[in-house]
Design a protein around this nucleic acid. Sequence first.
DNA 1: CGATTGAGGACCATTTTAGTCCTGTATAAA
DNA 2: TTTATACAGGACTAAAATGGTCCTCAATCG
Lengths: 155, 155
Amino acid sequence: MLKLSRLTDYAAVIMAQIARHPDHPHAAAELAGAVNLPYPTVSKTLKMLVKADLLVSQRGAQGGYLLARPASAISASDIISAMEGPVAMTECSHADGDCDLMATCGVADNWQRVSQAIRTFLDGVTLAHLAQTTPIKLPVHLPIQTVTLAAEASR
Amino acid sequence: MLKLSRLTDYAAVIMAQIARHPDHPHAAAELAGAVNLPYPTVSKTLKMLVKADLLVSQRGAQGGYLLARPASAISASDIISAMEGPVAMTECSHADGDCDLMATCGVADNWQRVSQAIRTFLDGVTLAHLAQTTPIKLPVHLPIQTVTLAAEASR
DNA sequence: CGATTGAGGACCATTTTAGTCCTGTATAAA
DNA sequence: TTTATACAGGACTAAAATGGTCCTCAATCG
């Protein structure tokens, strides 16, 4: 299903919440209340986001979490990678692909191309986009539909 | 990681194998040999692909599996859906989203838009593309990068 | 100093996934 | 008509990933 893990979902919601009020730190407990999720889970998510350098934390009273950089400089890929590791569709999508099916696979290169396209797309979607509270309903067909694979264009 | 399940990977490899020799039925055992995977697993995968109407099967001696329609009419989405259910990034991406975080979520609409864009892209990638044996190396940046979200375009 | 708040990691329960196997049924060829 | 071939369907198990909770330690502010 290409599904994101639940924690990634939480991360997006939490990041968006912070992005909408970027001027002061947000404590984990406060965020948990705002997004209506259990505190320990929110806390765990926040820690992962800090480790990925998407948030910075401030300890002590009045402490909390802040965006590490502007929302427009944080991409969907960043958030997904922070929670699930690199965005890749197949096991052999990463550079040092040591898949023992290489010889008989025959689709590896093409999947990687598809994977790359999606990654590039997600790089272009920023937290600023995600955090917008007045979403415009999309038409069913996006301009993306007109994109062609290099392989296709060359036929 | 937006990762496909391993069975989906297998499905793609198997489908591509059949697509390259579309004129006669391929037995599960033959395919298992060709792609170097255990027979039971290949068999299971093939059954799922039949149930999803991407393959048709022929029983009995000289039987096997054939594409249900031309490779150019089978999309990556079709294959992924067959193995993992509908392509959707979030739990609330499907129509009757009864996510109890609706009120506090704030990113649902935007994720759905992203999800839709990826789905549309995958609809456009066909088995014929995937099965090509002489892949053209993509430049790092695909045309897809120029695509804008409706939300972004409207700012 | 003491209250607050994050850091880090251990831990367990649950779900999902992968993989195997068994029994039944359709079909083709001898 | 018989027999071998090959798929259909589903039960079952083992392993792995995921989600979620909790505990102890460290930093910071007032």
